[in-house]
Design a protein around this nucleic acid. Structure first.
Lengths: 293, 293
DNA sequence: TCACTTCATGAGTATTAATCATGATATTTC
DNA sequence: GAAATATCATGATTAATACTCATGAAGTGA
C-alpha cells in the first residue's frame, strides 16, 4: 500500500536544522547549500501543512510538535539505515563497520575528519548510528562506538580518546553579576555531574539561587543560555566557537577537567577484528594530532 | 548526520512486489507503470549490491535476505507514516483517520473500493496501517480497523462485515489423487484453525500424510501451492480469481464458512466520533452491496 | 556605518523518477 | 501447434524533484 511520506532527504535536512539550530550549519554537515536545506524545510512545512519552526532573528526555533516528530522519526531513520547496511553486509562484497556516535561529538568533531578514514579504507562501509548512552550502543549491537563515560564499559574494551573540560557560560547581554550562584543553573541531562564538578573545583559549596530546566541537546542549551534563561556548564569543545565570537562569555572561572571523557569502545569479541582495528588505529592517530594542535 | 538510505519510493516498490509476487500487480497497486517498478527493483539491487529476487519463469521470488529486510523495514515505514500523519493532524486543518488493515484484505477488497470513501469525505485524511492481528492494531492506536476474528475484541466495539469461507486448493499440474490426506498440508500462520475446521466440516478425522511448512503471506502461499508444494486451505475470496482462471483447483470438497470473520473495530471511546462513524457508515453500505452481488 | 552572516526565493541546472515503446520469453486460449 | 495474451527488462524520452547560484532583506558585530 502506498503511504504518505516525506522524502528521506527532507527528513534529514529537518533533523540537521533542529540539531544545529542554523540552516547554514545543517547544510555544511549534509554537504548541501543553505538554499537546498532552506527549501527542504519549506517543503516539509508545506507537506505537513503547518509551520515547524518559529522564525526569530534569522534563526529557526522548532515548535513543540516539530521536536516530538523528530524524536519519533530520527530512530526510525537510524534503524532503516542499520537494516539496509545489514542487508548489504550479507553480500560479502564490502565490510560494514557499525559505528556508534554521540550526536554533537559526531557532528562537530568526527564528521569533519571522517573523510580521512573513508579515503584510506574503501573496503570498509561505515554505518553510523547515533546514541546518547553506552546502553544505546549496546542495544544497537555496534562494532565500535565513541562513548562518554569514565572508562568502565562492561564487556567492552575501551581506549581513551580525550578528556572533556567544562565551564559555565552566559550570554553577554545578561551578564551583570560575577557571582555564578545568583543565576538560574540550567541542567544538561547528559552531564548530570557538570555543575557539582565545576563548583567543587572552585571550592564553592553553596547552592544556586535557582535550579533551571533540564535539556538534552547542547545546541538547544546554548540557545537557551544566549536567550538569557540562565547559566549552563557546558563542554568547552562545544562552546569554543561561541566564546571566540563573543556570543557567550565564560566570566565565572576557568574550565575544569570533567571526571568523564571520551572513549573508543568495542565489544570484547570484536575488538581485534580487522575493521575495528583499522578504525581504532586511525582514530587514535587523529586524537594524537588533536593533542598536538 | 547524513545516512545511507534507499529512497522511500524504492522501498515501497520492493514491498509491493514481494507482496504481490508480480511486478505488474505491484505497479497497479502503486499507480505506476510496470516499467517504473521494475527499475526500482533493479535500483535497489544495485544499491545494496546483491540480487533480492530469483528470476524464475517471469516471476520474482524474493531471497531470504530480501524477506528479512522487508520484515524489518515495513513496520518502520508504517510508523514513519503514522508519525507524519500525527504531526499533520495537530494542524487542525484536516481530520486524520488512523485505519488498520489486514494486508491481503486491504489490497484485494478495500483498496479498489476506497476511492468511494475519499471522494465523499475530502475533510478526512486516511492513514492506513497494515497489521496481521488485533494486537497489532491496539499497539498502533488506530481509530478504526478491519480485523479478522470471532467478534470479541476487548475494549473495542465491533461490527460484523462478512464471513469467510475457506477451501483446500491445489495446482492442476499436481492433482492426481482425490484423497486430500495424501498431500502435504501447507499451513497459514494467520489461519491456524483452517485445516481442522475444513476437515471437521467434511467429517474427516484422520491425519494428513505430512504437515507442510507454515507461511504468513497469502500470495506466497498461493505461489507455493501452484508450484506443487502441497495443498492449502485458503479463504475463497483470495483464490477466486485463480480458481476461475484454472490456475488452481478445488477438487476436494466445498468451501465451508470459517469460525471467524471480518469485523470493523474501533476503541470504545472513539466509536462515536464523527470520522469513525463516517467510515463505518460507508463501509457497512459497501459490504451490503457486496452481499447483494 | 560598514562588513559580514543568515534565511528566503527567483531562475536555472542536475539528478532521479517515471512513461512509452519494444523485444524476448512465458503462459493461456482455441 | 499457432495465435493471442501476459510478463519482465531495457533504450529513449519526458516529467518531477533536488540542488545550485545569485540576490535581496534583515540581523549581528566591530
Amino acid at each position: 500500500m502506498k503511504r504518505k511520506l516525506p522524502a528521506l532527504a527532507t527528513l534529514e535536512c529537518f533533523e540537521a536544522v533542529i540539531h544545529h539550530g542554523l540552516v547554514t550549519r545543517a547544510a555544511e554537515e549534509l554537504n548541501l547549500t543553505q538554499s537546498a536545506v532552506s527549501r527542504q524545510i519549506s517543503n516539509l512545512e508545506a507537506y505537513v501543512q503547518q509551520p515547524l519552526f518559529v522564525r526569530r532573528r534569522k534563526r529557526l526555533m522548532p515548535t513543540d510538535a516539530a521536536l516530538r516528530y523528530l524524536r519519533s522519526v530520527s530512530p526510525l531513520l537510524d534503524t532503516l539505515e542499520t537494516e539496509t547496511l545489514r542487508l548489504m553486509s550479507s553480500s560479502t562484497e564490502n565490510q560494514v563497520l557499525m559505528l556508534g556516535l554521540l550526536p554533537t561529538f559526531g557532528s562537530r568533531w568526527l564528521m569533519p575528519r571522517l573523510g580521512g578514514f573513508t579515503e584510506g579504507h574503501h573496503d570498509i562501509q561505515l554505518n553510523i548510528l547515533t546514541g546518547l548512552t553506552f546502553e544505546d550502543f549496546k542495544r544497537a549491537n555496534v562494532d565500535v562506538a565513541i562513548a562518554y563515560g569514565n572508562g568502565n564499559f562492561a564487556g567492552y574494551q575501551s581506549f581513551h580518546l580525550m578528556n572533556e573540560t567544562i565551564q559555565p557560560v552566559i550570554s553577554p547581554d545578561h551578564y551583570a553579576n560575577p557571582d555564578v550562584l545568583s543565576y538560574e543553573h540550567l541542567q544538561m541531562s547528559t552531564r548530570p555531574s557538570a555543575w557539582p564538578d565545576w563548583l567543587a573545583a572552585q571550592k564553592i559549596d553553596a547552592k544556586p539561587s535557582k535550579i533551571g530546566p533540564t535539556m538534552g541537546h547542547f545546541t538547544m542549551m546554548i540557545e537557551a543560555v544566549r536567550s538569557g534563561l540562565g547559566v549552563a556548564v557546558l563542554p568547552s569543545m562545544y562552546v569554543k566557537d561561541d566564546l571566540k565570537a563573543g556570543r557567550l562569555l565564560a566570566p565565572f572561572g576557568p574550565a575544569v577537567t570533567s571526571r568523564n571523557g571520551y572513549y573508543l569502545i568495542s565489544p570484547d569479541h570484536l575488538a581485534s577484528s580487522k575493521k575495528v582495528a583499522a578504525f581504532k588505529d586511525w582514530l587514535l592517530t587523529e586524537t594524537q594530532k588533536k593533542k598536538a594542535d
